[in-house]
Design a protein around this nucleic acid. Structure first.
Lengths: 343, 343
DNA sequence: GGATACTTTGAAATCGATTTCAAGCATTGC
DNA sequence: GCAATGCTTGAAATCGATTTCAAAGTATCC
C-alpha cells in the first residue's frame, strides 16, 4: 500500500473539514461527542496517522531530544541514556543519540540539529566543548541541559555529583585502611571531573596530614589503556605507594591488567579504588571498590527538567542538582589480612 | 536571538528568488558560479540553516533511521549501534534509538514512527515481534532491516551469524578438552538464536557420539540472573557434568557467580563457554572463553544495505549476510593441568 | 542579424498538518 | 418572537522549504 492516508481523506470520509479532524486528534477544542465518535471511527477504520513532518512544521516543534555522550558502550553513559529515554518516551518525546567517540568536532556538528530545528533540545553528557560555546547556544534561545558539569546560565539545567566530596571519602577510606602513600590516576585534563577529583584527593591528604608527592599523580585519559600505561609509569618510578585511586573504573581496569602481568596482588600489595561502578567492576577478582552514581535517576531527572523548561518558558530556580554518590567498598580496597602499610 | 533566518531572508539579501537559494543549498541544478558565490556569501553571513521540518515535508523523507535493541547497556548491542551510527552519520542520516528493555509492546510502539513518517527506515536488532508482523510492515512499503535473524522477504536485508556452526565448534572444543558431560544453558525460548544454538549443541553431541541427556539443558533467559538460577538447578540435579555451554556471556556471568558461591573452580571443576564476547568477559578470572561476532561491522554493513535499499528502489539479490564468528579460547575452558574428565 | 537551442532564474504550486477567524446553529433571556 | 450569547464547525491562511513550469537571457549557427 503506497497510498498513505492524509487528513483530508479522513475528513472526506467522515463528512467534516480537516480542521475538525485535527481538533479530534489533538483533543483540544470542544468537539461534539457525536462528531468526535464519527471521526474516530473513520480514523480507526483507515488506520490514519498524522504525518510528523507536516505536524512539526506547523507546530514548530519536533518532540525530539538529542543526547550527546562520549561513548555509548560505556555502561556509565548507557545507564544515563536509559533514564533519559524512558522519561522522554513517557512524555511523548523521541530521543536521538550521538556517540562522539570523544570527538569534539562530532559534538559540535550534532549540536547543529538545534539550529536546523531537527531537535527541540539537547542533553550534553560530559561535554568536551567549552563553556563559552555552551553559553552561546543557550543565548541563541536553544534548550540545553548538562550532565556532569555545572554551567551558570539561568536556562541550563545541570546535574552533577560532588566529585570533591566523594574523592575525599575515597582517600579517607584508603587512609583508614592504613595507606599513606596513595597514587592517583587522573582522567583527561580538559574535563572538570578530573579537576575536581584531583582537588578532593589533595584536600583529603591535607586533612590527614599526609604530605603530597606530585610524582604519585599520572594521567590516564579515562580509558583502560590510559590507566594501564599510567600505572606502569608509576611502578617504574619505584615509589613505595600501596594504594591507587583511579578517577574511573575503566582506568582501574588497566591497573588490574598491569597488576596481573606484573604479578602484583590486589589488594594485598596494592589497594585499588575506582569511580563509576561500571557493570564490569563487581565481576572483577577481587571486586573493584568504586563510587556509585545514580546514573539512571540522573538522566531521568535532568530530562524531566529539560522538558519542563521547554514547555513553560519560566526559568525555575531549581536548576542545578548536586547528587550524592555512595562508596561501594569491595575487595580491591580492603586488606583482609590487615597487613600494615609498609611506609 | 529569537528570529530565525529563513530562506526568503537569504533570497532577499542576495537579490535572488528562494528557488535559487534552494538550488545553491542542494547544489543540484546549474547555478552560475557568480550567483552561487553571491548566495553562499549571504548564507554564511547570516549563518542560515534550512528548517528540517519544512525540508522533510517537501522532500518526503527525514534522513533518519530508527534502531530497536533489547538493551542498550549490553555491550553486544551498543557495539552494533556504534557501527550503525557511524555509517549512518557519514551518509547524513540521523539515528534514533529505542531500548525496549525486552518489552515487545515498546517495540511495536516504536515501529509506529514508520507510519508517521518520522523515520525513513528501521533496523530491528534481535526482534521480539513475530515474523508475520515484520513481513506486514515490509509489505506496507516500509524499509526494515534485521540483525540476528533471517526473514524471507525481498525487501528486508538481514545479517546474522551462523549459530549452528559456532555452537558445534564450541561443543567440539569442549569435547577435545576431554569433556563428555556438557550442560547447556539456553536463552529465551522465543528467540531463534536459542533454537539454533541448541541445534548446534545437539548436532555436535551426535557427531561425537555422545549420548544426549535432556536433564543437562536449562533455560536462562539470556540474562545474568537467569544463568545463575539455571546453573544452580543443574547443580541440584547432581549430574556429573564437567563443562557448561552458556548461550551468551551474560548467563555465563551467572555461572561464575554461582561457582564462586559454591566454591567450584573454573575451569578445573567446571569448564565454561559463553557467546558474544561482551566487554566484560576477558576481565573475568579466569577470562571467559566465548564466541566473538564482528558486532560493529555487522551494524555498519546492514545500515549500508538499508540505505542503499531506500535510495535505489531495486532489490539487490545480496540481501542476507551470514557472518562467520570466531572462537576466543580463554582460561575458562582450558584446563591447564590437563586433568582428565571424570566420566 | 536573426532564428534556434540551451542555460539560468523566478513565480507559484506543493508537501500535510494546525490555527485563526468568521459563519452557522442552538440556546437563553427578556 | 427576537436579540444576544455561546458552541461547534468550516474556509482559508500558514509553517518553510522544494520543484515545476515558464520566462528571460545567452550562446550558437547559418
Amino acid at each position: 500500500m503506497d497510498t498513505t492516508i492524509k487528513i483530508v481523506d479522513v475528513a472526506h470520509r467522515a463528512g467534516v473539514a480537516p480542521a475538525t479532524v485535527s481538533r479530534v486528534l489533538n483533543n483540544s477544542s470542544q468537539v461534539t461527542p457525536k462528531t468526535r465518535a464519527k471521526v474516530m471511527k473513520i480514523i480507526n477504520e483507515l488506520g490514519y496517522q498524522p504525518n510528523s513532518a507536516a505536524k512539526n512544521l506547523r507546530s514548530q516543534k519536533t518532540m525530539t531530544i538529542g543526547v550527546i555522550v562520549p561513548d555509548i558502550s560505556n555502561s556509565y553513559f548507557s545507564e544515563i541514556i536509559k533514564g533519559i529515554e524512558n522519561i522522554a518516551y513517557s512524555k511523548k518525546y523521541k530521543v536521538v543519540i550521538c556517540d562522539t567517540a570523544n570527538n569534539e568536532e562530532k559534538e559540535l556538528e550534532f549540536l547543529n540539529l538545534l539550529t536546523t530545528r531537527t531537535i527541540d533540545g539537547v542533553i550534553l553528557v560530559a561535554p568536551m566543548i567549552s563553556d563559552e560555546e555552551i553559553l552561546k547556544i543557550a543565548d541563541h534561545g536553544h534548550t540545553i541541559g548538562i550532565v556532569g558539569k555545572q554551567i551558570d546560565h539561568e536556562r541550563i539545567p545541570c546535574i552533577l555529583t560532588d566529585n570533591v566530596k566523594f574523592s575525599i571519602q575515597v582517600v579517607s577510606h584508603l587512609v583508614v585502611q592504613g595507606h599513606r602513600n596513595i597514587a592517583f590516576i587522573n582522567g583527561s585534563a580538559h574535563a572538570v571531573d578530573s579537576y575536581d577529583r584531583l582537588e578532593g584527593y589533595l584536600k583529603a591528604l591535607r586533612e590527614h596530614h599526609i604530605p603530597f608527592h606530585p610524582e604519585l599523580i599520572e594521567n590516564g585519559d579515562f580509558n583502560e589503556t590510559g590507566g594501564y600505561e599510567a600505572i606502569l609509569r608509576l611502578f617504574d618510578k619505584k615509589l613505595p605507594f600501596t594504594a591507587v585511586f583511579a578517577a574511573n573504573d575503566e582506568m582501574a581496569l588497566g591497573v588490574y591488567r598491569a597488576c596481573s602481568e606484573r604479578n602484583i596482588q590486589i589488594p594485598m600489595q596494592l589497594a585499588v579504588f575506582g569511580v563509576d561502578n561500571n557493570r564490569i567492576s563487581r565481576y572483577l577478582t577481587p571486586p573493584l571498590s568504586t563510587v556509585n552514581q545514580p546514573k539512571y535517576a540522573m538522566g531521568a531527572l535532568l530530562v524531566e527538567k529539560l522538558i519542563d523548561m521547554m514547555h513553560e518558558n519560566e526559568f525555575s530556580e531549581n536548576r542545578v542538582f548536586k547528587i550524592d554518590s555512595e562508596l561501594l567498598i569491595r575487595g580491591s580496597s580492603v586488606n583482609r589480612t590487615q597487613q600494615k602499610d609498609q611506609d
